[in-house]
Design a protein around this nucleic acid. Structure first.
Length: 210
DNA sequence: ACATTAAGTGATT
DNA sequence: AATCACTTAATGT
């Protein structure tokens, strides 16, 4: 049995684990590598075993908007729907740190959904999680609460990197949140004045936020 | 020391 | 909240 599968012992039944073990292949990406780009056809379904993947979406003018992270022991809801419909990818996936994953063939998805209740609930759970989080983001965008979105973004980022110090330029943050650098700089400055963060060049230290 | 890039600020829409 | 125009600060060569 592949040792990456140990964690899933607790969530999947033995027979399913064995199928995964036999049918999956390993893949790894180093930090910053593009795993999936827009329009690319999805052929396999990833099961993240180590690291995190950053998912973003692109608008008509080529501006990128950060959507969410996929973490260890999770899978991608978008990929799943793409797989089922045999569609091209609507999103871009970049390795946030060094990432390892198992790739599952898409043609067994239908069968597994029927056969394994643990697989079905695993898929349902990841779709539901993503859906709820996207709803939250839509709320924040609709009601123009960029400050809250920024705080959320910072906390998320520090969780992923397991550090209270984030290494990012204001420009990068602005791009991720589809805003402008000046606005982000001002909001960050406000947070610093409220003693929630400390600003450095290319770095932000979170204080009581975590 | 100089050029380049990141960040801060006031005014305007 | 975004953009402009400009300043100041940090960093690389």
């Amino acid at each position: 049995m592949k040792e990456e599968l140990v964690f899933f012992n607790t969530v999947f039944e033995q027979e399913l684990l064995e199928e995964i073990d036999h049918l999956s292949e390993r893949a790894s990406f180093s930090a910053g590598e593009v795993i999936m780009d827009y329009g690319q056809i999805v052929r396999q379904m990833p099961l993240i075993t180590k690291g995190s993947v950053k998912i973003s979406r692109q608008d008509e003018d080529g501006h990128e908007l950060f959507l969410y992270y996929i973490n260890e022991h999770e899978t991608c809801a978008m990929t799943f729907t793409c797989c089922m419909m045999r569609n091209a990818s609507e999103i871009k996936a970049v390795a946030e740190d060094d990432v390892e994953m198992l790739l599952l063939p898409i043609d067994v998805m239908d069968k597994w959904m029927m056969k394994y209740t643990t697989w079905k609930s695993f898929i349902m759970r990841t779709i539901m999680m993503r859906f709820n989080e996207l709803l939250k983001t839509i709320d924040q965008i609709a009601f123009q609460q960029l400050d809250e979105r920024l705080i959320h973004y910072l906390i998320e980022k520090s969780k992923i990197n397991h550090s209270s110090v984030i290494t990012l330029s204001h420009q990068t943050i602005a791009d991720d949140l589809a805003s402008s650098r000046v606005v982000i700089s001002r909001l960050l400055k406000k947070l610093e004045n409220d003693n929630q963060i400390i600003l450095y060049r290319n770095q932000i230290k979170l204080l009581n936020l975590v």
